[in-house]
């Protein structure tokens, strides 16, 4: 359990970047984002709804993400999130920061 906790803290620090990555592929709605993260991590990382919306609201305030109303599958409206040009830049710069940190950590750990 404690091992899981540490891993999850490490991963949570990259929530913004994970979301930007998913949105750089396509516009997506909230539940789709958490579901894709669970699927792509083979169930090793479960992004909580609260963490996701906290990150999305921050990204929105910073101008990295926008949203619009789209059609839902069961008739209801769904809020779709969309990456902005600025968001694409933020994503690219987060990735290069991570590459750098990874190189340093590999030497240190």
């Amino acid at each position: 359990m404690s091992e899981n906790k540490i891993t999850s803290d490490l991963l949570r620090g990259h929530t913004d970047t994970m979301i930007l990555r998913l949105l750089s592929e396509a516009d997506r709605y909230g539940y789709e984002i958490v579901k894709l993260i669970a699927e792509r991590s083979d169930g090793n990382y479960e992004l909580k709804e609260a963490t996701m919306y906290s990150s999305l609201r921050r990204l929105e305030a910073d101008g990295d993400v926008e949203w619009y109303w789209g059609d839902g599958s069961q008739g209801g409206r769904r809020k779709y999130f969309k990456i902005t040009e600025k968001g694409k830049e933020t994503h690219a710069s987060n990735i290069s920061n991570w590459e750098y940190a990874k190189r340093v950590l590999e030497k240190l750990l």
Partner: peptide, 9 residues
């Protein structure tokens, strides 16, 4: 359980 720490958000 999937909600997480919503109070803080």
């Amino acid at each position: 359980d999937s909600i997480g720490d919503i109070e803080q958000t």
